[in-house]
Every structure is written in C-alpha cells, then in structure tokens.
Amino acid sequence: MIVKYILILFILIPIVYGSTIGIFPLNETFVVKPFKTYNFAFYLFNPSNQDVKVNLYFQCKDQNNFYNYTEIYPKEVFVEANTSILNPKMVLVKIKNPLFIEKNYGKIKYFEPIFLEKDIRCRFFAKTEEKTSLIVTSELNGKIIGINPIKITALFLLMLFVFFFFKVI
C-alpha cells in the first residue's frame, strides 16, 4: 500500500525545470495563389510547472532573399505551465502573395512580378528569454503562385476570338 502511494506521488508531482517549450505542427506545406493570403497556425505548449515567456519570429526565404510579405501574431506570448498538445497556445502566421514584389536597385525601388512559381522556405521560431535561450522551430515550405505567361496569352487570344466572333455575328 505504501509503495503504491509513493508511486502515485511520483507520477503526479511535476518536477521544477528551467524552461520548457513544445511545438507543433512541424513540417507543413502551403500554396498561395495571386493576391491571396495563406493563414496558418502554430501551437506552443509547456508541460512543466513554470510559465515561460517566448518571443516569436517567422522568417521566409526564397533561394537567395528574404520574403518579407509575412506577418505573425502575437510577437511574444506567455505559454502557461501544464499545457500539452490538447490545450496549446496558438500563434498565427500569414503569408501574402501580392504578385508584385518590391525590390531595390540601389536607391531606386521597383516592383518585380512573380512568374510561374516561387519556392519559399519558412521557419517559425519560439525563443525563451532566459540567459541561455532555448529556441524551438518548425518548418513551413511552399509555393507562391505567380503569373503564367502561357495561360495569360491563351486567355488573351481566347478573349480576342470571342470578341471578334461576337463582332462578326
């Protein structure tokens, strides 16, 4: 009887830890159509018995450059103690597709259209504020759909055809 009691105590009493942070989902994909916004939620949890404050970052890159048309909300969060995957804290991210991306040529700003598809790799970071920072991350990779020159040309030709067809009639 005493042995059982001790065992139960061991299971139920959480041990105090420095900082703890958990994350899901981990490796998702997305597709963003022109002028659309892709909304996605990451979830953080903290199975220890101490609340933890984390700063949140969301960073996207194409092959060489940062893709800045993203948002994250909130930017910092308290993840309460004793939370699990069943009652996590939600963090929202947005990836926008404006179809035209702002670029700089020296001091001159201009807008470059996205053609076909642009592969984007995004990473979500949740970083604790202790002296030794603990960072958990998750990946979100996908495509930004751009202008398809063949499709546009075909549509234009079709439009012309329909226009002249009506004109003849």
């Binding site: 105090v16 830890y17 420095g18 900082s19 703890t20 942070i21 958990g22 994350i23 899901f24 989902p25 981990l26 490796n27 998702e28 949890f45 903290n46 199975p47 220890s48 995957i85 604790t128 202790e130 002296k131 030794t132 603990l134 958990v136």
Partner: peptide, 17 residues
C-alpha cells in the same frame, strides 16, 4: 498533425554558464 516535440533545459543551464 500528430508530430510534436518539446525541449526542457535544466535550471542551471537556463541561469547561464
């Protein structure tokens, strides 16, 4: 999603080295 992970650091590690 059924994949997740969590990381714990010890008190002394969190306090700094």
């Amino acid at each position: 999603s059924t994949s997740f992970y969590y990381i714990q650091t010890s008190n002394k590690l969190s306090d700094g080295i």
